[in-house]
């Protein structure tokens, strides 16, 4: 029993010490509806939430000794900028919440961090090395760059570019103009509709289960990843699939792939419906698979 009391007391002391080692952040500014907010530096998590106000707030806790530079211009401010510098020799550990008008543009950059954004309809430019980025909503422009961190987008940005080295990319939604790129992560795009989409991987597998708009185009290139294209029953598009050394598996029609140039790899040209969209699939030595999905057919453009 004594040891239990000791443990509880120790836990209380430790948590109190930890709290005391934190400093509160609470910065609030009157801003325009399309304010540009830039936040950069030492934080471990950043949650960005859009709200229906002409103001912004940056709140949270950062380790004591963290330097926070920057601020806002004259109110209502069109631009706000923060830079956080952790005390020397310490890891970034701050946890921040940023509330901005929905139409704001947010630029955030951190080393290893979790970034979660919801409801922003302006622009987003997010950059991490490791950690995780999750975007919910339909920003006008979305640019995400990550090395190892995974990226999840749920929504339909008007323009979207997501690039990782080994981080996985998941898009639940679509975009009129999408570019998804990874070296060795996986890319999964499903659910929404696309007008122009370009997907590139070196070794990562790619699954595309989105819908192509009329006159839309999809290009998927991979060196050694498997490319899976999931097609709805009434899909209407032309498909050109080419491998240099891999196989093509067609589970959509009875057409069989033909041997590729010089007898290596395989090729398959397929016209579905009236062919009002176009998909080009190319893999050096990964397999390409055409699969049936149970989503609805092409949406009108």
């Amino acid at each position: 029993m004594k040891s239990l009391h000791f443990l509880i007391a120790a836990a209380v002391v430790c948590s109190t010490t930890a709290l005391a080692a934190q400093q509160k952040v609470d910065r609030r500014h009157a801003v325009t509806r399309d304010v540009y907010v830039r936040i950069n530096g030492a934080f471990a998590s950043l949650r960005v939430t859009a709200w229906d106000r002409d103001s912004m707030a940056l709140v949270g806790d950062v380790p004591k000794g963290t330097r926070i530079d920057g601020g806002a211009s004259e109110p209502p401010s069109k631009g706000v900028k923060y830079y956080l510098e952790a005390p020397a020799g310490t890891q970034a550990a701050g946890r921040l919440e940023l509330f901005v008008p929905a139409g704001a543009t947010v630029w955030a950059k951190a080393a290893n961090a979790t970034m979660e954004v919801s409801g922003v309809t302006g622009g987003l430019d997010l950059n991490i090395i490791g950690g995780r980025i999750a975007v919910n909503g339909t920003p006008r422009e979305l640019n995400v760059e990550s090395m190892d961190g995974a990226v999840t987008v749920t929504g339909s940005p008007g323009w979207m570019r997501v690039k990782t080295a080994s981080g996985n990319i998941v898009v639940n939604g679509g975009s009129p103009d999408a570019g998804l790129t990874t070296v060795s992560g996986t890319i999964t795009a499903q659910g929404g509709d696309y007008e122009r989409a370009r997907i590139e991987s070196v070794t990562g597998n790619v699954v595309f289960g989105g819908l192509l708009r009329r006159a839309g185009s999809l290009t998927i290139d991979s060196h050694s990843g498997t490319i899976d294209l999931a097609l709805p029953v009434k899909a209407s598009l032309d498909i050109e699939a080419t491998t240099i050394a891999g196989s093509i598996i067609n589970n959509v029609t009875s057409r069989r792939p033909t041997p590729g140039r010089e007898g290596r790899g395989e090729e398959l040209s397929l016209g579905l419906g009236i062919g009002d969209a176009r998909a080009t699939l190319r893999s050096f030595k990964g397999n390409i698979r055409l699969l049936r999905s149970d989503v609805s057919p092409n949406k009108p453009g």
């Binding site: 090395m147 190892d148 080994s166 070196v202 050694s224």
Partner: peptide, 15 residues
């Protein structure tokens, strides 16, 4: 970070 970059570069170079 350097290791992550070099790994990715090696993967691309092999391709």
């Amino acid at each position: 970070t350097i290791a992550a970059v070099e790994r990715a570069l090696a993967t691309i170079d092999a391709a």
